[in-house]
Simulated assay, not measured.
Amino acid sequence: MPKVAVYNKEGATVGEITLSDAVFGAEVNPGLLHEVVQMYLANQRQGTSDTKTRAEVSGGGKKPWRQKGTGRARQGSIRAPQWRHGGVAFGPHPRKYGWTMPKKARRAALRQALSAKLASGELIVIDSFELEAPKTREVVSLLKNLKAEGKAFIVTAEENVNVYKSARNIPGVRANAARNLNVYEVLASGKIVLTQDAVAKVEEVLG
Rank of each mutant, 00 (worst) to 15 (best):
R179T: 02
A133Q: 14
R111C: 08
V125K: 11
G71K: 07
P64Q: 05
G31R: 14
A109E: 00
K68F: 06
V202S: 12
Y97A: 12
I192M: 15
L143A: 04
V163N: 06
R174C: 05
G61I: 12
L32C: 05
K63N: 07
L181W: 11
R84T: 12
E130R: 09
K104F: 04
M1H: 09
P171Q: 12
A177Q: 14
Q82C: 08
H34K: 03
L142D: 03
L19K: 08
T100Y: 11
P134Y: 02
H85M: 10
A116C: 02
I154T: 07
W99K: 13
R54G: 01
H85L: 11
S141N: 11
L33H: 03
S166L: 05
T53D: 00
G15I: 04
G207W: 04
Y184P: 03
A188S: 15
G91I: 00
R107M: 05
V155F: 12
W99E: 01
P171F: 13
R74Q: 10
V4F: 00
L146I: 10
T136L: 15
A80S: 12
A167N: 02
G207P: 14
L194N: 06
K96W: 03
K52V: 07
V205I: 14
W99S: 13
P30R: 04
W99F: 13
M1C: 09
I192L: 12
R72W: 10
E185V: 14
N176L: 10
A116L: 15
I124F: 09
R74V: 10
Q38C: 04
V199E: 03
T70H: 00
V23E: 07
A89R: 11
L118P: 05
G61Y: 10
K147N: 14
N182K: 02
Q112Y: 00
N169A: 12
R179S: 15
Y164M: 13
D21Q: 14
P2E: 13
R179Q: 15
I192C: 07
V125N: 11
K63S: 08
K62A: 09
K62D: 07
A119H: 06
I192N: 06
G25I: 04
E203G: 13
V36M: 03
R174V: 01
G60K: 04
Y7C: 15
Q38P: 02
G15K: 04
E204W: 03
K117A: 03
T18E: 14
Y97S: 09
V14H: 10
G91Q: 11
P64S: 13
A113Q: 02
V139A: 06
K165M: 14
A119S: 15
Y97L: 07
L143D: 06
V155G: 06
V37P: 03
T51Q: 08
P30G: 07
P102L: 03
R66Y: 05
Q75E: 00
E159D: 11
V23R: 13
L142R: 00
A89S: 10
E149I: 11
L194D: 07
Q112K: 00
Y184I: 09
R106E: 10
R74G: 02
A22K: 14
G190T: 10
Q75T: 02
N160V: 05
A133D: 02
A113V: 01
K104S: 06
